[in-house]
Simulated scan of single mutants.
Amino acid sequence: MLGELNELLGASPQRPGTGKFTLLRDTRTDGSFLVHHFLSFYLKAGCKVCFVALLQSFSHYNIVAQKLGVSLTAARERGQLVFLEGLKSCLDLLFGEKEPSGDPSPLQFLSGSTSNLKALFDFVRTSLTPAEGDSWQGPVLLVDDLSVLLSLGASPVAVLDFIHYCRVVVCSQLQGNIVVLVHSGEDGADEENELLGTALGHHSDLILWAEGLATGFCKDIHGEIKIIKRLSLQSTEQDVVQVYQYKIQEKNVTFFARGLSAAVL
């Protein structure tokens, strides 16, 4: 969990908020550090988390989470974390392996038997619907990386429909939160990704957009992040936009205003 980022967002595990949709985007850089932050943040906040991990293995996320003070293995064993390992699910589906539970694969659309993401939505809904006796805080859906669904053959409309129904259930009915990452290609080369990111941006409460430096690599400044708080969704107020530069460290990320890096000063 990144303490400095929490301060910039005005958030803390003691008050994780409810009913919010957060969009993470990255351009010319890897925005996965934001995914790791929100994963550790919500687990420390005591929330029930459904993590649809389409980009990396469980062991990868667990190693990073341990550096941030969280054990995904322990969270999964106590029922706080439901982890969908997309890479393994894809291989199991392609090679005819059945889910351990006997239920249809959440990525059933890969088999060509359906063109929608209903099975994935059903997986999310079942995972986050509170069971009797549950004492977790509000449920959270985290997706890394939503763009992978497009690469696997899902249409932008199918992905947007999936997110729409997830928002209705998770944010509205269950008063939880959703965090998704969408990759943005340089100069808008990938039209489907840009369409997806733009469409989701119109309905987001918060947008965190990480970008690589236009001047290229710098060992002391790894990129810029734009924080957009969508106040216009609830009122006539203008959106609040803040821009910071950042440097990724072993167990933390440092944020500073443009031109105020210690290396520059």
Results as ranks from 00 to 15, higher is better:
Phe256Lys: 06
Lys20Asn: 14
Lys219Glu: 12
Met1Ile: 10
Leu8Tyr: 11
Val243Cys: 05
Gly31Trp: 03
Phe38Cys: 00
His202Tyr: 10
Leu128Arg: 00
Ser32Thr: 15
Leu265Ser: 09
Leu5His: 03
Pro106Leu: 07
Val70Pro: 06
His203Ser: 14
Lys44Thr: 10
Val157Lys: 12
Ser111Ile: 00
Phe121Ile: 05
Ile178Thr: 05
Gly197Gln: 05
Trp209Met: 05
His37Tyr: 11
Ser57Cys: 08
Leu152Ala: 06
Gly223Trp: 01
Ser89Leu: 12
Pro16Gly: 06
Ser105Tyr: 13
Leu146Ser: 11
Asp144Glu: 15
Glu4Val: 03
Thr73Arg: 15
Leu231Ala: 10
Gln238Ile: 10
Val35Leu: 11
Glu192Phe: 10
Ile163His: 08
Phe21Gln: 01
Val169Leu: 14
Ala11Leu: 07
Gly19Ala: 06
Gly79Ser: 12
Ser12Glu: 01
Gly133Gln: 05
Asp92Glu: 13
Asp190Cys: 05
Tyr165Asn: 08
Leu128Pro: 02
Gln245Glu: 12
Lys226Leu: 09
Thr27Phe: 03
Cys90Phe: 02
Ser113Asn: 10
Arg230Asp: 07
Glu186Met: 08
Phe83Lys: 07
Leu93Met: 07
Gln175Ser: 15
Phe255Lys: 09
Gln137Ile: 04
Thr22Gln: 02
Ser151Leu: 15
His164Leu: 11
Asp145Trp: 14
Leu110Phe: 13
Gly185Asn: 05
Asp122His: 13
Asp26Lys: 02
Tyr61Ala: 11
Tyr42Gly: 00
Ala199Pro: 06
Pro100Asn: 10
Lys44Gly: 06
Ser111Ala: 14
Leu174Arg: 03
Asn193Glu: 10
Ala75Gln: 13
Leu94Thr: 11
His37Met: 05
Pro156Val: 01
Gly112Gln: 09
Glu7Trp: 07
Pro104Lys: 08
Glu85Asp: 07
Ile221Ser: 06
Phe51Lys: 03
Ile227His: 08
Tyr246Cys: 00
Asn193Asp: 11
Ser71Lys: 07
Glu211His: 05
Gln14Cys: 06
Gly197Pro: 04
Glu194Trp: 10
Lys44Gln: 11
Asn116Gln: 12
Ile227Cys: 06
Asp220His: 11
Val143Cys: 08
Lys67Asp: 14
Glu4His: 08
Ala262Ile: 09
Trp209Val: 02
Arg28Asp: 13
Glu85Gly: 14
Gly96Cys: 04
Ala210His: 03
Ile63Lys: 11
Ser232Asn: 08
Glu85Asn: 15
Arg28Glu: 13
Leu196Gln: 04
Val243Ala: 06
Leu84Trp: 00
Leu206Tyr: 02
Cys171Lys: 00
Leu68Ala: 11
